[in-house]
């Protein structure tokens, strides 16, 4: 009895340590974002904010320094870059949602064919699409830059959209082919017998059943495009196309950064994907179950 209690207590302790490891870093950022630099740059830093303030957020969003900032030394121009986080987030959203839409449309159609139809070159093209993803991103950085430059797309949303679609599509096709492969065929066959075309079957019968799989594929695609950094770094130059990761990294890796301001910008950037992940939680885990669990 006592032994069981001890084990339970030990397990709770393990869980709490795990929770601290997982959530601690995020909570600390949240904590930093409601303090001012003068409280953060102390030894030891203030973990419990003395006067929690939304001034960092106010500054990042309105771009006019609140009163509390008057006597705080700012990290100069580099911290100033945190102020362009809103336009950068807008770019990130435009790019990530366009990529998601294209990848889903193109990927679902191709995946359905791979899962259901037999044709010459089927295995070969499938293998080609999948292996293309094994080429590390850094390995084709120069040629991709040249392609985008020749297309006249440098520093535009379209540049990032095209590149991300090419990089994410193989995963989407693989994932959806798996997913479609698990579907019962009887319903489709009934639809085909009733005179539906293949495409019509896909649209009217299959898509509604596979909506969870599509949602998971969409979540993966969105996250992938939203997070990408390397290509965003060298395909964009101005705030017309710079995405949130690029702007934040430019701000945060400098030594004299205003950490309060950077934390506020960072929180604004990670909130959307976190909400996304929590809302799509069921689909994502179920999607993983299909992809990896069986």
């Amino acid at each position: 009895m006592i032994r069981q209690r001890l084990i339970d207590a030990g397990m709770t302790a393990v869980g709490l340590v795990l929770a601290l490891f997982i959530l601690g870093p995020i909570l600390w950022m949240l904590d930093s974002s409601v303090q001012l630099d003068r409280d953060l740059f102390t030894v030891p830093p203030r973990v419990i904010p003395q006067q929690p303030t939304l001034d960092n957020y106010r500054y990042v969003i309105t771009r006019t320094p609140p009163k509390s900032y008057e006597r705080v030394t700012m990290g100069g121009r580099v911290s100033g870059e945190a102020l362009s986080i809103l336009p950068a987030l807008r770019n990130s959203f435009i790019v990530a949602s366009s990529v998601t839409a294209v990848v889903l449309a193109v990927g679902a159609v191709a995946a359905y064919t791979y899962a259901r139809l037999q044709f010459a070159g089927r295995d070969l093209t499938y293998a080609f699409i999948l292996t293309s993803r094994l080429i590390p991103a850094i390995s084709v950085a120069i040629p991709v830059f040249v392609i985008i430059d020749r297309l006249g797309l440098l520093d535009s949303h379209l540049a990032l959209i095209v590149v991300y679609v090419a990089f994410i599509l193989p995963f989407t096709i693989w994932f959806l082919t798996q997913y479609f492969g698990y579907l019962p065929r009887d319903i489709e066959e009934a639809a085909l017998l009733d005179g539906c075309t293949r495409f019509g079957t896909l649209r009217r019968v299959v898509v509604p059943i596979v909506a969870p799989g599509l949602a998971a594929a969409a979540a993966f695609a969105f996250m992938g495009a939203y997070s990408e950094f390397l290509y965003a770094l060298f395909l964009t130059r101005t705030i017309a196309a710079k995405t949130a990761p690029v702007v934040l990294v430019a701000t945060a890796i400098n030594f004299d950064v205003s950490f309060a301001l950077a934390s506020a910008a960072l929180i604004l950037t990670i909130v959307p994907p976190i909400i996304f992940a929590l809302v799509f939680r069921k689909f994502i885990t179920r999607g993983m179950l299909v992809g990896f669990g069986r």
Binding site: I22, P25, I26, W28, F229, L248, I274, R281, I284
Partner: peptide, 24 residues
């Protein structure tokens, strides 16, 4: 609770994770 919480690091872009840990 942890089954939900564990999704958060996965959802956070890797460069953001880097910034967070650099600060820590």
């Amino acid at each position: 609770f942890l089954r939900v919480a564990i999704l958060l690091p996965w959802a956070i872009p890797v460069v953001m994770a880097g910034i967070i840990w650099k600060w820590i």
